[in-house]
Design a protein around this nucleic acid. Structure first.
Length: 499
RNA sequence: GGCGCCGUAGCCAAGUGGUAAGGCAGAGGUUUGCAAAACCUCCAUUCGUCAGUUCGAGUCUGACCGGCGCCUCCA
């Protein structure tokens, strides 16, 4: 089975085959580090993380490059507003970003190039475009001439003549007067004396937004990439411009496949920094297990919009995120099931006893099959639901009086959890640690003290031992009223917090 | 004006032209001192509307209604 992906360039699902058999070269547009990563970023990078994991599990060697834009006018602006040095600000948010990515369970890219360390490559590429008459110098700026690249618009399927110039009402008037064509875009922007900038053959300045990705991707992956990814908002102009400048420079196709993920939305509107309607990943980490955020990102197909809901109190404060809470329950279910399986007593496991349930045996393949089909993560989660149900059934059976589980079935279940981690990056943590963290976070949110709860449980256990069920139920009723759910078992009484 | 996306149960959400996955919520049940957890059963004759193509359409075509994105800040 081969991986099929939707290619923005052709608008179709196509088999993904790297130019060099067995080795995929992938570039994903990373963030501009002037603020914390929000849920839109989280979604994007979880999507490409799953892609890379899946391609690797299919036996491909993957070189995954994801840049960090640490030189940009937004950084400059934010630095000025906050009285920070631009470099310092960028470093701070780049570090925070790395931490957020780790908490989301994303693997590190193989290369994480930064604009600040690739100025030489950028200058060389700009010069090459000028030499090839695809770019021109204008009053200290350098612009790419879109008319010099007849295929301009092929990615976003638009025609230069039919685009409404200034439709976004964001025209830069200074630039407009320096351009030959309104769609020409800056490769290099003039910086004032003393302002953030670098020396160049055209004077002191800084790179335009698009040129960095061309320069850095070609430097680390060569002239032609197998796949280039990013958010849907990058199709135009960012990726269109990358294609134009790269292909104009090299004459080679820039990327063989283009992949774009849909937005996280709020009230059906795109979540974005400029609209101010965003929640940062960190805001959410305080409320739910980071893995629940990762899980939530997989509940919708990556190209479809993902609408976010939350609840408010009378004062308008955010009280909760139902979708994340549901995702957290599912993540807890994954770990509870994994722990049950691991805790099956050895004496309950017997050799050669009965067939392995097909939901267990077939799960790794089902997971791969779902991801092969344009990274269909919702289907992968549906297969996961079937798998977990069957694992619990296996455990239920084993734990019944005189119950047994076959060693083969247990082994198949373990292989299933392994596949889950490899493919989706879920369920790889220590179950008890995750479950305890979830419980403690919820208890804290309700202002409950674990010591007090456990003292209550002890009192109840004593009452139960004396068969004083009225008292035992009274204590439990009190705890339930506070959101504490008790779980009696042969090993004692555990507790969780309802949400 | 141009390009593109979406509309599936109370909610979320998959769905190669062959007769509606999965999750949440809800209803019964197994289990339990009672619960919880876990498991089992049930829960869309129907896929925004109307036409058309087809033996057959949620899936293809057209029109319409409703929502959204992009057209040089964006993941």
């Amino acid at each position: 089975m081969s991986v099929r992906l939707h290619n923005t360039l052709t608008g179709k699902k196509e088999p993904f085959e790297p130019a060099e058999p067995g080795h995929a070269r992938i570039y994903v547009c990373g963030p501009t580090v002037y603020d914390y990563a929000h849920l839109g970023h989280a979604r994007c990078y979880v999507v490409y993380d799953v892609l890379v994991r899946h391609l690797r599990s299919n036996g491909l060697e993957v070189t995954y490059v994801r840049n960090i834009t640490d030189v940009d006018d937004k950084i400059l602006k934010r630095a000025a507003e906050t009285g920070t040095e631009p470099t310092e600000l960028a470093t701070r948010f780049a570090n925070a970003y790395a931490e957020d990515m780790h908490r989301l369970g994303n693997l590190d890219p193989d290369v994480e190039p930064r604009v600040s360390t690739h100025l030489g490559d950028i200058l060389a590429l700009v010069q090459r475009l000028i030499d090839g008459e695809h770019a021109y110098v204008s009053d200290g700026d350098v612009y790419f001439s879109v008319e010099s690249f007849p295929q301009y618009g092929k990615l976003s399927h638009r025609d230069l003549g039919q685009m409404k110039v200034g439709a976004s009402e964001r025209l830069d008037e200074t630039q407009a007067t320096r351009k030959r064509h309104p769609a020409d875009f800056a490769l290099w922007k003039k910086s004032d004396e003393g302002a953030w900038g670098w020396e160049s053959p055209w004077g002191r300045g800084r790179p335009g937004w698009h040129i960095e990705c061309s320069a850095m991707s070609m430097k680390h992956l060569g002239d032609t990439l197998d796949l280039h990814g990013g958010g849907l908002d990058l199709v135009f102009p960012h990726h269109e411009n990358e294609i134009a400048q790269s292909e104009a420079a090299t004459g080679a196709p820039f990327s063989r496949c283009w992949m774009h993920n849909g937005f996280v939305e709020v009230d059906k509107e795109k979540m974005s920094k400029s609209l101010g309607n965003f929640f940062t990943a960190r805001d959410l980490f305080d409320r739910v297990e980071p893995e629940a955020i990762r899980y939530f990102m997989m509940t919708v197909h990556y190209r479809a919009p993902l609408n976010l809901d939350w609840t408010l109190d009378d004062a308008g404060n955010v009280t909760g995120f139902p979708q994340f809470e549901e995702a957290e329950r599912r993540v807890a279910y994954v770990y509870k099931t994994k722990r049950r399986l691991a805790d099956l007593p050895e004496k309950r496991i017997v050799d050669g006893d009965g067939p392995v349930p097909k939901e267990l045996a077939e799960f790794p393949g089902a997971l791969r099959g779902a991801l092969d089909d344009d990274l269909n993560m919702p289907v992968a989660l549906a297969k996961l639901a079937d798998f977990l149900k069957t694992v619990n059934e296996l455990c239920d059976q084993a734990m019944r009086k005189k119950g047994k589980a076959s060693r083969e079935a247990v082994a198949a279940a373990n292989r299933g959890f392994e596949a889950l981690g490899v493919e989706l990056g879920l369920g790889t943590q220590d179950p008890s640690a995750v479950l305890l963290r979830i419980r403690d976070r919820r208890a804290k949110a309700r202002g409950l003290d674990a010591g007090w709860i456990e003292a209550q449980i002890e009192a109840r256990t004593e009452a139960r031992n004396l068969k004083d069920f009225a008292e035992a139920d009274r204590i439990r009723g009190e705890l339930v009223a506070k959101g504490v759910e008790l779980l009696d078992s042969t090993e004692g009484t555990g507790w969780t917090i309802t949400d």
